[in-house]
């Protein structure tokens, strides 16, 4: 089996994986980082979204070996070592942007990418930017609010 080397949440990781292992399986089953979820079989729901080299990817739609040599960040790697939440995590909490929490890790990872790399200047743009992530609980309204709040916070920091 190929030996896969990559950085996961800031730490070097080496594991043998079968070549047909999906990245999401590798994260959940091999590394037991179960914050990344699987909600569908077709790359639609976005619950498995993680960051690879700082960009959001759906971990169900790529092979683990494609992450070789790259920087993988999962929801477990967002808060600081001292436990301070990422501004997006804080915004989701303050705005009640989650209910059952199942879509939340993927939603947060997508939202961070959205704020960092896309136009979040209007509610319509944020809604369009969240198209790739499904939530059945919140009706999206408070997620949109959280993303807008985090975008403001990010702008203020810049």
């Amino acid at each position: 089996m190929p030996l896969l080397s990559l950085t996961v949440n800031g730490k070097a990781v080496q594991r043998e994986v079968a070549p047909n292992t999906l990245l999401v399986e590798f994260i959940r089953e091999h590394l037991r980082l179960t914050g990344t979820h699987t909600g569908c079989d077709t790359g639609q729901c976005g619950a498995c979204t993680v960051h690879l080299d700082g960009r959001a990817v759906k971990a169900c739609s790529m092979l683990a070996t494609q992450a070789a040599g790259r920087q993988l960040t999962t929801i477990e790697g967002l808060a600081s070592a001292t436990g301070d939440l990422h501004p997006m995590q804080t915004a989701f909490n303050q705005c009640h942007g989650l209910q059952c929490g199942f879509c939340t890790p993927g939603m947060v990872m997508s939202a961070i990418d959205l704020v960092q790399h896309h136009d979040c200047s209007s509610e319509a743009k944020i809604r369009e930017g969240l198209e790739g992530n499904m939530c059945r609980c919140t009706g999206y309204q408070n997620i949109v609010k959280a993303v807008a709040q985090a975008a403001e916070a990010t702008k203020a920091l810049a």
């Binding site: 914050g35 477990e76 808060a79 939440l85 909490n93 929490g101 939340t104 947060v108």
Partner: peptide, 9 residues
């Protein structure tokens, strides 16, 4: 929320 937001649910 914290456990859901940090992936430890």
């Amino acid at each position: 929320d914290t456990r859901f937001l940090t992936g430890v649910g």
